[in-house]
């Protein structure tokens, strides 16, 4: 998708809903942000206001639901990851970053989820095979015993950033997510704010970041829960530009 952000806006500065291929489940919460497009044509919030960067350093909440993510399950998945030049985490509940900034999450012995790079807005993942759910031949595109999972359609993706991420999570989740118990690259599949979610400890441009993947239907609720939780740390919503510069 080569469309520029400028061309997506009518005269009154509003973003046309039709301009993006799809929107996040909590798009109403980020409607005031300057929009941008991911590699696949989905809508992402680029910037809320000039204080984005400051909030991102304390406790930012970023809606990345429009950014490409994918999943594969089966014994043949390491072959696919190897062919794509992506890392293979050593054991379940570990995550590893690829050269382009994509992340590979190992959720069980044979299930892997991939999170698109914030820097290139998911361009690398868009080249992976079998990700078009409408393509009846999607299974033929992957190695034997490697089955695509369409987690982009089933799960939303929110990200908490900044120095207070573990303090914020302590208010929402019963699992110890402090740095010493939950180091970089750890994954916790657990309950947070009374819904199920996958929490990943990442680092984006030197900034601590916890990605949270939850059911699409719960994403809007989780957004409100996170925004409420970051208030005491002077945090709030942030756009993608505040994290990737």
């Amino acid at each position: 998708m080569t469309q520029s952000t400028e061309s997506l806006q009518p005269d009154n500065g509003q973003f046309w809903a039709e301009a993006a291929l799809s929107r996040s489940a909590c798009y109403r919460r980020t409607a005031v942000a300057q929009p941008m497009l991911a590699a696949g044509g989905q809508q992402l919030p680029e910037r809320f206001d000039p204080q984005d960067v400051e909030r991102a350093k304390k406790a930012g909440v970023l809606d990345l639901s429009g950014l490409l993510r994918a999943g594969y399950r089966g014994a043949g998945t390491p072959e696919l990851l190897g062919n794509a030049g992506l890392p293979i985490p050593a054991r379940p509940n570990l995550a590893a970053a690829g050269a382009d900034g994509d992340w590979v999450l190992r959720l069980s012995n044979t299930e892997y989820w991939l999170l698109g790079s914030l820097t290139n807005r998911g361009e690398t993942l868009a080249k992976l095979p079998g990700l078009d759910a409408c393509d009846s031949g999607c299974l033929d595109a992957t190695p034997d015993a490697c089955y695509p999972l369409f987690c982009m359609d089933s799960h939303g993706w929110l990200m908490l950033t900044g120095e207070h991420v573990s303090d914020v999570m302590a208010k929402l989740c019963g699992v110890d997510l402090r740095e010493e118990a939950f180091p970089l690259g750890s994954i916790a599949q657990t309950s947070l704010a009374r819904i199920n979610g996958i929490i990943v400890h990442q680092e984006i441009n030197g900034l601590t970041a916890y990605s949270i993947l939850c059911d699409n239907a719960s994403t809007d609720y989780l957004w409100t829960a996170l925004i409420d939780a970051v208030q005491e740390f002077d945090g709030g919503p942030v756009g993608l530009a505040s994290v990737v510069g």
Binding site: N93, S108, G174, V175, A188, Q189, S191
Partner: peptide
């Protein structure tokens, strides 16, 4: 709360099971 040691995820609240 009662804690269940999950073989994949480690100790978790029983309400997750």
């Amino acid at each position: 709360m009662k804690i269940m040691p999950c073989p994949l995820n480690g100790p978790r609240n029983i309400s997750e099971f």
